[in-house]
Amino acid sequence: MKNGNLLKAVFWVLLAVCCWPGVSAPIALVAGITFGIAIGNPWSATTSTWSRRLLQASVVGLGFGMNLPELLKTGKDAFLYTAVSISFTMIVGYLLGRSFKIPRRTSTLICFGSAICGGSAIAAMAPVIKAEAEETGVALATVFTLNSIALILFPPLGHLLGMGQRQFGLWSALAIHDTSSVVGAAAAYGGLALAIGTTVKLTRALWIMPSALVAAWFTKSEGKVKVPLFIIGFIAAAAIKTALPQFNQVWNPLNGVAKQSLVVTLFLIGCGLTREVLGRTGVKPLAQGVILWAIVSVTSATAILIGWIS
């Protein structure tokens, strides 16, 4: 009992520290992962739910730091290459799944999560293809593990490759799965990288609905496809900020709170990477996810550095 109380006390202290503006996204994630693996998460289900909700609220708050015309232009420019990236990822992922002889639904979920929007895409697709809870859990664990690694590796790799902020924002949005990890990596790189990364990533996330609807049509599924409302909120916040610039003394603090709440979100996400989660991943699904992620990362970085994507 005493150990349980101490565990909870450590969790709350770390959570409170992550609310301080001096704590960056990578530090919060590493703290969360260390806590989850070394000690264990006392509220794994609760932190998973709240990390998702806090992420969505944070993304909406980031809209108060955006200019709507620039946002729409970036989204329009991103539409084509996000479509190409998603198609490429799904094809390569399908071939990898076949070669590793991974169960079809598990492989589909890993491909879909890698191609579009990580956990959100998996959650949207799972009921459509009637995936079992264990299949969904394996796909989530695989994608989640890679998200955590990407958040730590991408910023130093971006500097090593000599990427500017716009280039890195594009790369993180195209090669990292979850919105939280894209935003966290881009925020560590710079303000412009954050703006570009968030916008392109949300454009990529918009493909959840049409992709899930196509899958539902092919499988004759009656599962419901949910509208990602936080994306609508993000655009609405940018519209309000653009239409009412005289209230920037209100919008700027809201944007600042949203950025720090993302740091807290990443701590909660890190806490979810426990030994139990790693144990559920399995060698073959993890191999599929790692190889697919490496191919997409290298291909998209190359396309950006040679100017095919700008």
Rank of each mutant, 00 (worst) to 15 (best):
S87H: 03
P69G: 12
Y94R: 01
K130G: 12
I149V: 15
C117H: 05
P156F: 12
I91F: 13
S114C: 06
L160R: 07
I91Q: 10
A121R: 03
V138S: 07
F168Y: 14
S180L: 11
L72H: 14
K73S: 14
T179R: 09
L160I: 09
K130Q: 15
L170H: 08
P69M: 14
L160V: 08
S87E: 09
R98N: 01
Q167H: 07
V143R: 05
S87L: 14
V128P: 04
G93F: 02
K76T: 13
F112W: 04
W171N: 03
I116D: 06
N67E: 13
T145S: 15
V84Q: 10
I86R: 03
V138P: 05
T142K: 09
E70H: 15
I122S: 01
G158E: 11
G137P: 03
G75S: 14
G162H: 03
F168A: 12
P155R: 00
A141G: 11
A83G: 13
F168K: 06
V182F: 11
G118H: 03
P155K: 00
T142I: 13
I91W: 10
Q165C: 02
I116N: 02
A133H: 11
F144W: 09
R104C: 06
S99Y: 07
A115K: 02
E135T: 03
G118Y: 01
R105V: 05
A173W: 01
L160C: 10
M163S: 02
S172N: 14
L153E: 02
W171G: 03
M90A: 15
S172Q: 13
D77S: 13
N67P: 06
F88D: 06
G137Y: 01
V182I: 14
G75I: 10
A123I: 05
P103L: 03
S99E: 04
A175E: 13
E70I: 12
G169L: 09
C117N: 07
Y94T: 00
L170S: 10
T142Y: 08
T108G: 03
A133I: 11
R105Q: 06
L68K: 05
L170F: 15
M125L: 08
L68T: 09
L71H: 08
V128H: 04
A126K: 05
V138F: 05
D178F: 12
W171P: 00
R166H: 12
Q165A: 10
T145C: 15
K130A: 14
T74V: 14
A123M: 08
S181N: 15
L96P: 03
S85E: 14
L160F: 15
L80K: 11
L157E: 11
D77I: 10
S99P: 04
F154D: 02
G118F: 08
M90H: 13
T82D: 00
L153K: 01
Y81I: 01
G164F: 07
A141Q: 08
T108R: 02
S85M: 13
L109F: 02
T108S: 12
G113N: 00
N147P: 01
R105N: 07
T108Q: 09
F112I: 04
R104F: 04
M163G: 05
G75K: 09
A121E: 00
V183F: 06
E134W: 10
K73N: 15
T142M: 11
I129A: 00
A83L: 13
Y94Q: 02
G169H: 08
